[in-house]
Amino acid sequence: MRSLYLCILLLSLVLPEAAPATELLILQSSRSLVYAEALRGFRAAARSSEQPLVLSDYAEVDVQRLVREVRPRMVIAVGDKALTACRKIREVPVVSMLSLSLSQKPQSDHVGGVTMVAAPGRYLELFAQLGAKRIGVLYDPKVSGLYLKRAAAEADDHDVSLTTEPVRHSRDLQGKLEKLKGEVDLLWLLPDSTVVTTVNMEALLLFSMTQGIPAVTFTGQYLKNGAAASLDIDPYDIGVQTGELALSLLRSGPDQKVPVLDPRRVRLQVNDSVLRKLRLRTP
């Protein structure tokens, strides 16, 4: 991997001192097809001068120093690693996309962007369509507490109730599942790194099947394992939405609060065989 110093040297070659500051410094956590698709959408919406950098290509990157050298008007953080690296930036706004932590932790006024989880209300609407009223949720308060607080505030509007069980260590999951037996009509699986591990996913979906209740997840990849439905994000549209937000902020000036937005487009996927087995109507 290249060092930070080589990185800054390379940037100095493409950004002479006499040149005006670039509008966007794009920090990408790593090289992945999902990030590439989101950036394709971003660039379609925000046609601005940019300097991209993939953090995984370097042994270390001092992002604060990089911002001083490149002098961008805004930093675009793609993924959790990039957003974490931007936490100490104060000089310019930071707009993030495809970062789970964006919806899991409170952000300062100059940090925001588009989250990568469907808004709680979208899930609550789906639960109502499935005819489920008692929703079981296992979560780590440090990871999903902020998101679940939003869901609890909206639950009554959708005529559903949430039965929540905090899981502070992944090994505690089985005991928490026991508490949900006979108490819930549906199991809601959040993108919670403490709860959703490879081993725990087997236990969660087995619980769903043995209890005869649907499991609703955040990604369609679990449908083949027995989940009933999922609300998937659209990386390209998240990129477009983030680009539109960035462009609006650039036009508004440097002192604007950067909002945290939910993805505006999500895709419902269902496992028809599971829905039929549970005698649930297709939403």
Rank of each mutant, 00 (worst) to 15 (best):
L187T: 12
S32I: 10
V270F: 02
F207E: 08
S56Y: 03
Y147N: 10
P16C: 04
A246V: 15
L231S: 06
V199W: 03
L27E: 02
D232N: 14
P214M: 05
I213N: 06
Q241T: 07
V75L: 02
A246R: 01
F218A: 02
A155Q: 07
Q64W: 01
D272H: 14
S273L: 05
A59S: 12
V67F: 02
G79L: 05
P166L: 01
V70A: 06
V92G: 07
G41C: 07
K88R: 15
A203D: 11
L138V: 13
D255R: 11
A19V: 06
G212L: 01
E91Y: 00
Y139P: 01
L186I: 07
V258R: 00
S30E: 14
Q256W: 01
L268P: 12
D185T: 05
R279N: 15
T115P: 06
V54N: 08
Y147A: 06
V216H: 08
P52M: 00
R31A: 14
R122N: 13
V216M: 02
R71D: 09
L6Q: 12
P93C: 10
A229D: 04
A36L: 07
S96T: 13
D172H: 12
L275Y: 11
A152H: 09
A77V: 07
M97A: 10
P259R: 01
I76K: 00
A119N: 09
S99K: 04
D62C: 10
I26H: 00
S208L: 09
A227R: 08
Q211S: 15
V61H: 09
T282L: 15
E23P: 05
T163S: 11
D57F: 05
G113P: 01
C86L: 09
K257Y: 00
L11H: 06
L162P: 14
L177N: 11
K133L: 11
D262T: 01
L4S: 15
A128N: 15
L126Q: 13
S230G: 02
G121R: 09
M201D: 05
D232M: 03
S48I: 10
L98Q: 10
